[in-house]
């Protein structure tokens, strides 16, 4: 484990996707708590709160959907990457779009990884396991304090 943070922030507006993702994390046996935000506003509000209160640390990793109601995933990404401290938190784009424009824009804005939501639940499980192994495992995160 790294000293980055203790939660995983998932920004996802689709309740089914949230539900299935939670199930996949549960099945993978990942103990780290998931914190869900249902849109961009809530995500930004949560992150600002997390950073404001000294006791609550930033999330270890952020899973971000691109198509969100209101403030879009790109805007949230730009906000995070423009934040003096939060910009060091790895942001994994988790979306259903394979479009080149989205890929380019996401990386241009500083996304750390770009994953396409799998349709099959066993594929999703494998993906969650790999996220855990890589981003919460071997990847070295920057200290937040």
């Amino acid at each position: 484990m790294t000293d980055g943070g203790s939660t995983i922030l998932v920004v996802e507006d689709n309740p089914d996707d949230r539900d299935l993702l939670a199930r996949a994390f549960r099945k993978a046996g990942i103990a780290m708590p998931l914190r869900f935000a249902v849109d961009g506003e809530e995500a930004v509000a949560y992150l600002e709160g997390a950073h404001g209160e000294a006791l609550v640390s930033s999330p270890a990793v952020i899973l971000l959907d691109l198509k969100l109601p209101g403030r879009s995933g790109f805007e949230v990404l730009a906000w995070i990457k423009g934040h003096p401290v939060l910009r060091r938190v790895p942001v994994i784009i988790l979306t259903s779009s394979r479009e080149n424009v989205d890929l380019r824009r996401a990386y241009d804005l500083g996304a750390n990884s770009y994953l396409v939501k799998p349709a099959r639940s066993d594929d999703l499980l494998r993906m969650v396991e790999q996220i855990h192994a890589y981003w919460l495992g071997i990847n070295q995160a920057a200290g937040m304090s």
Binding site: N14, D16, D17, L20, S96, K117, A119, S121, L124
Partner: peptide
């Protein structure tokens, strides 16, 4: 179109 499909498949 994919979102409900994923839900269908996932559930």
């Amino acid at each position: 179109l994919r979102a409900p499909l994923r839900a269908m498949h996932g559930y």
